[in-house]
Simulated assay, not measured.
Amino acid sequence: MSTATTIDAMRTAAHALRGGETREALRAVQAAQDALDVAKAHLLGKLEETRDYELDGASSVTNWARRELRLEPAQTRTAVRCAKTMRDLPEVAEAAVAGSVRMEHLNLFAYGLKHIGHEVIRESTNWLLRVAKTCEPSKLRAVMKELRHAVYPDSLDEAWIRGMDREDLKISPVPDGWHINGFLNQATGAKLKTVLDSLSKPSSIEDVRTPPQRRVQALDELLTNVLNNGLPSDKGIRPHLLVNVDVETLHNALTNQPDNSGKPAELVGFGPIGNQLLNYLGCTGDITPILTSGKDLPQAKILNVGRDHRLATPRQRKAIVARQHGRCAAPGCTNTHLEIHHTTWWSHGGRTDLDELAGYCSRCHHLIHRGLLDAAPAHQQDTLLAA
């Protein structure tokens, strides 16, 4: 590889920086940067071929570049891949050295060699180079993908099937909030993007929210609408965001007083939350006083229905969900969709009272009725859940 072009580009950039006009200096600096990137890729490729990195005690070129050049492994791998591409495609190498194409273009030619094939790319080099010399890398990327689809027409359906196999979505609580990780197939991802793009558009010229803020607020708006209107009720209870908190903690939060109760509120499904978030949720949500146990208390008579009704009432379901923090009553089970079970079976004379009802997920409820799991009395639920 000739170094004359690289040296000339550096001299031009140095001259422009010393006293050139701003636009001229930017063009010269970019040309020098492109020339240096190509030269660095060539040298890293040569270093890998000669294995001279071993002279400095490195086990690979990526390890050497990380230690000596502070390059990320991905950067080094890209550079080495581009060096190999220049060896395989002399016309592309000549254009890169001349400054007509840059590293991003070289990387796309490397993609073509790997995913389309050496023979097709060599036959198409001339017209692909015309695209690379006149367009930004994103245009060449689109052209490469179109070429791949033309050569391998079944690849689109194969990619869709691979995407279906990779489908996953995980939402995990972390100290600062929730971590979302996963992969959506082409159709589902397009639907989500369409909805978020529509809801996250700037509301006016005065909307100063950043794009991330607008996307998150759009998702929040979507979920709020679904919770309010879009989900079916379950035995009279529509799914909602639930917070369990005792009276003293709630009063302190809503009145901005210090909380010394030692009993933080719990956002069901997440865990303890601070008073500022509790204050916000209390301001925007409904507050429902709930009695969770105590058949001898006068208030319990309002909720307890005895033998008059077999199924738990909506108010009883709310009380049981709150008492169990939204989790299944079976030891070790963390499922949250609960079915209400009589701990003393209705057919054995059980009563539809708070102290004789417990919430179990569908699987554990089935195990109880198959005789494989014992249902604990309601007054033991807190102990079991804590264990």
Rank of each mutant, 00 (worst) to 15 (best):
L89E: 03
E91P: 00
A93L: 07
E94Q: 12
E94P: 02
E94T: 07
E94R: 09
G99N: 04
S100Y: 01
R102T: 14
M103V: 13
E104M: 07
L106W: 13
N107I: 00
L108D: 05
F109V: 04
G112K: 02
G112S: 08
G112V: 12
L113S: 09
H115L: 13
H115G: 05
I116Y: 12
G117A: 07
G117N: 01
H118K: 08
V120C: 09
V120P: 01
I121H: 03
I121D: 01
R122P: 01
E123V: 10
S124C: 13
S124L: 12
N126M: 03
N126Q: 02
N126K: 11
N126I: 06
W127F: 15
L128E: 05
L129S: 07
L129R: 03
L129M: 08
R130Y: 07
R130Q: 11
R130I: 00
R130S: 03
R130K: 15
V131W: 08
K133E: 14
T134Y: 04
T134P: 01
C135D: 06
C135G: 13
C135Y: 03
E136R: 09
E136F: 08
S138D: 15
K139T: 09
K139G: 00
K145A: 13
K145L: 14
E146W: 11
L147T: 08
R148S: 13
R148V: 10
R148Q: 15
H149E: 07
V151D: 07
Y152W: 01
Y152S: 11
Y152M: 06
P153A: 02
D154R: 09
S155H: 06
S155Q: 14
S155P: 04
S155D: 14
D157P: 02
D157V: 11
D157R: 15
E158K: 11
W160M: 10
I161A: 06
I161C: 06
R162H: 15
R162E: 15
R162Q: 14
G163I: 08
G163D: 10
M164V: 14
D165W: 05
D165L: 10
D165I: 04
D168P: 00
D168W: 11
L169D: 01
L169R: 04
K170Q: 11
K170G: 14
I171F: 03
S172C: 05
P173L: 09
P175A: 06
P175E: 14
D176W: 06
W178P: 00
W178Q: 00
I180C: 11
N181V: 04
G182H: 06
G182N: 05
G182R: 00
L184H: 01
A187Q: 02
A187N: 01
A187S: 03
A187P: 02
G189F: 13
A190Y: 01
K191H: 02
L192T: 04
K193W: 00
K193V: 01
K193F: 03
T194F: 00
T194N: 06
L196R: 02
S200R: 05
S200F: 07
K201W: 14
P202D: 08
S203N: 03
S204D: 04
I205H: 13
I205C: 03
D207V: 09
R209L: 07
P212W: 03
R214L: 04
R214K: 02
R215Q: 15
R215E: 11
A218E: 09
